[in-house]
Design a protein around this nucleic acid. Structure first.
Ligand SMILES: NC(=O)c1ccc[n+]([C@@H]2O[C@H](COP(=O)([O-])OP(=O)(O)OC[C@H]3O[C@@H](n4cnc5c(N)ncnc54)[C@H](O)[C@@H]3O)[C@@H](O)[C@H]2O)c1
Ligand SMILES: NC(=O)c1ccc[n+]([C@@H]2O[C@H](COP(=O)([O-])OP(=O)(O)OC[C@H]3O[C@@H](n4cnc5c(N)ncnc54)[C@H](O)[C@@H]3O)[C@@H](O)[C@H]2O)c1
Lengths: 206, 206
DNA sequence: AATTATTTGTGAAAAGTTACACGAATCACT
DNA sequence: AGTGATTCGTGTAACTTTTCACAAATAATT
């Protein structure tokens, strides 16, 4: 288990998501690499190879016990604890994220929200009171928060990122349409719908 | 220009985004693969190789004329026309997307919004009136819409996808946390913040 | 005009990823 | 107990992607 390729790590949450679906929606207790692959459009060999980086979780002839594999994936991905998350930006997107009920069941809880607009500060957002951005560092350190979701305009994103990194944040999910510079021990993940749409229009006939 | 790897296509929108930034924010007229790579954390060789799939856009000794390269990338990605987009789901996320002003300047316009909740239908959403989901197919065909953004709960996503495909949609940006099955001529792009967060927690010490 | 510095585009090498295919384990059924 | 079907884990081959490194073009400087 020395160094697993990042591309493999990126597929594990998708396996986990589908396994949860199989258990909850389809009421199955076991599955196979073939079935999982079919449902996800991934080859069965790839699924087996990916999992083999971490151990032997299946049984010949039977496949995988879903709940057991879910538990293993949750351990591999460090999801046995619940991660507190800071949300920066209480605009349209911040509102959607703050109300999103899909975080908690999958290991994350938005614990604090920050904004710099006096009209937003103090606002109650799905049970969370929006805090002043000035208090961001102290609150993040007090709560020992390691993960932030960045939902402010692009022109403030790098500046806020620098402050998050100084405050000890190690993973940032960035919705601002801009590349962020961070030290090598900080993870950044990007979400820009326009980038995704533009990739698809390449394949469309205009 | 026979078949360019999809992974290359995926980087072009990011180049385009950064070039626009260089032109508008930094007021530069030229740049180099080295500078662009520095700003994006990508090697200069990769940028040159990527662009070389489509032609020779730079000049030795000088680099790239930014506006010219932007124009070329827009043509390659089929962004010389404005793409009308259908938004399905007028919940929290649908509201954020309908109000997002970042689509228009980069080639996309949300042209219609659909929901099945009688309380949502008829609502005015940033100038757009929410339509009944029953009218989805006819409106999409009438407006010749090829791109949809899916922002409904997971349990309806596949069913709506099937309807979108039948109506002629060829590209779907899916926010529901579920894999979609589509014919091979339909593009799907996924956006699940939890998948992204879970990929990052692998690298965090719990 | 000659020299030096910069930068592109690209063939070839290196590194990374996926697919194949098969032995071994397990199960279902006779 | 034996037979046939299923499925895993994995070594190897095939394929894809990235990096290297250099000739050629251009620009800046002497
Ligand atoms: N709305 C969407 O659907 C959508 C989709 C994808 C990406 N995005 C991106 O997400 C970000 C937010 O989008 P939005 O639509 O919510 O915008 P918005 O303008 O509604 O919200 C931005 C919020 O950030 C706050 N803010 C600005 N500067 C700040 C600072 N220095 N410190 C703290 N807070 C600050 C503002 O007060 C505002 O509340 C933008 O970068 C946008 O490009 C939005
Ligand atoms: N809120 C977020 O920040 C967020 C983030 C990422 C992903 N998502 C995903 O995006 C989707 C929407 O999230 P949301 O927070 O806006 O949820 P929401 O419940 O606020 O909105 C969903 C909307 O879809 C409508 N809808 C339901 N069934 C429909 C049908 N058959 N036809 C048409 N419309 C239908 C509902 O009436 C509702 O208006 C979900 O799949 C969610 O998991 C949400």
């Amino acid at each position: 288990m020395v160094d697993v390729p990042d591309i493999v790590i990126g597929r594990l949450p998708i396996y986990l998501r589908e396994l949860t679906r199989l258990a909850e929606e389809e009421n199955q207790t076991t599955t196979s690499s073939h079935e999982l692959g079919q449902r996800l459009g991934i080859s069965s060999a790839q699924i087996r190879k990916d999992l083999s980086h971490f151990g032997e979780f299946g049984k010949q002839g039977t496949g995988y016990h879903i709940n057991y594999l879910i538990e293993q994936l949750r351990e591999i991905l460090h999801l046995t604890q619940e991660w507190p998350v800071a949300l920066i930006g209480a605009g349209y997107l911040g509102h959607a994220l703050a109300h999103y009920d899909g975080f908690k069941p999958r290991g994350f809880v938005i614990t604090c929200v920050f904004d710099n607009d006096p009209r937003k500060i103090g606002e109650n957002l799905n049970g969370l009171v929006v805090s002043d951005i000035h208090d961001m560092e102290s609150i993040i350190q007090e709560k020992n928060i390691k993960i932030a979701i960045l939902a402010t305009p692009a022109n403030t994103a790098q500046e806020i990122t620098d402050r998050l990194v100084k405050a000890g944040v190690k993973a940032i999910l960035n919705y601002a349409p801009i590349h962020l510079n961070v030290p090598p021990d900080v993870q950044v993940s990007y979400s820009d719908p326009v980038v995704q749409l533009q990739r698809m229009t390449y394949y469309l006939t205009p």
